[in-house]
Write a protein that binds this DNA or RNA. Structure first.
Lengths: 225, 225
DNA sequence: ACGATAACTTATCAATGGTCAGTTAACAAC
DNA sequence: GTTGTTAACTGACCATTGATAAGTTATCGT
């Protein structure tokens, strides 16, 4: 009936019903719309209906492509953190002292987190943690780096690798590489989390805090002579 | 005395309408019920209706005593963090090297956070931050330490005081006391937040991480000779 | 032309936080 | 006692949320 589209009007922002086999493009549109809303208005304001409206489709249509709302947000975060992983991969390939690399890692990580506070929040600070993330230990997640929600785990595993490298290259560490990586990550995460959680507090300059934390960690994890 | 009415039933839980001027006891009952539910089932499962049910009162009745759900949770957190403040106050009065006190502080803080993960989450990690907390800078909050949501701020201000004491007592710090306090807090917060956020991850032993972080911070914030 | 089915919609669900217009009961004043 | 005031409380209701059920439409291979 409405197949004629009323004299050429498109029935939706993105051109109406998809052709057979083109469903994945709708999926991408949903992710795009969700991302926009998410960045514009945050998690709470990004409702199923608002996403659907922006895509130009009914709300239940989203459930054809995602199991639930968390799955959408998870896919979004994976997209974002995929970029961080690329960033870090470059960094890892570079030559240089592993402890220097650790600091580079921390700097890149912190800046990335602060540039994507909403996604960072969802993955590393969220109150309402999607089931898939909550149960996913970092280590086990590396089994399948493409599983939704596992990207954060991959990031951490790279840090462990760098610390292992540090020990292998002759640095005397005060703790096992795993523990060093955990302490390093926790430190820099503390900085990022605090800055994101209380953006209006008169913190010391961000760069100073990041550098300060990394200096502290670096000094702290090497064993004294 | 006041409770002795009719057949001597206590006016406490499910005991019917409060007498005039006794509304505050209902308020306490609401907080108690909310706390139980909160610890049993977490934030999301603690709905207005469930709290009301447990108290034995209708849902709108809660709004006689609290402006909204956040206000209930905020009052709960304040209760909990009030105990932490007492703990720290004791510690602060004790004699000893300020940097030792800083470590004591960190240990007490971390243990407390891990013992009250739900409240900690709500105050320091929550995705959905009550307006009152979000706008409350730590420093300004000390103006009125009894304002709802300000207890977390008081805790931090104690740490700043300890670091100031450290500098005053002759320690050469690598950064201003404020910055040192921020780094110390961020470090220990990173540990607590990580352990709470991903409880199933095979982290290094908690005590080792806490001690490790504090050692790192201590070593890191003093200026090298 | 026909049948299978991917793509999509309308109607609806139960639960949520929150508001409103009352109702009931405690108490003081007469 | 009777009455007026008002603190304490309730039932009905609202908009919004994530999610489901069941039906409809359009595309495509045959």
């Amino acid at each position: 009936m409405e197949g004629m589209r009323l004299a050429g009007f498109s029935t939706a922002l993105a051109g109406g019903r998809k052709r057979r086999g083109e469903g994945h493009t709708r999926r991408d549109e949903i992710l795009q719309a969700a991302k926009e809303l998410f960045l514009e208005a945050g998690y709470d304001a990004t409702t199923i209906r608002r996403i659907a409206d922006r895509v130009g489709v009914s709300a239940p249509a989203l459930y054809l492509y995602f199991h639930d709302k968390d799955a959408i947000m998870l896919a979004l975060c994976d997209q974002t953190f995929g970029r961080l992983i690329e960033l870090i991969a470059d960094l890892e390939r570079a030559a240089g002292d592993p402890l220097d690399k650790m600091c580079e890692f921390g700097r890149a990580y912190a800046r990335f987190g602060l540039e994507h506070p909403d996604e960072y929040r969802l993955v590393f600070m969220a109150d309402h943690v999607p089931e898939q993330i909550r149960r996913t230990g970092h280590r086990t997640a590396t089994d399948d780096p493409d599983r939704p929600g596992a990207k954060g785990a991959v990031v951490f595993s790279r840090l462990v690798a760098i610390l292992a490298q540090a020990e292998a290259s002759g640095h005397k560490l005060a703790y096992p590489p795993d523990t060093c990586a955990e302490l390093c990550w926790m430190g820099i995460h503390g900085v990022v989390a605090a800055l994101i959680h209380k953006p209006d507090f008169p913190w010391t300059d961000r760069e100073i805090l990041i550098k300060g934390m990394l200096d502290i960690v670096r000094k702290g994890i090497v064993r004294d002579a």
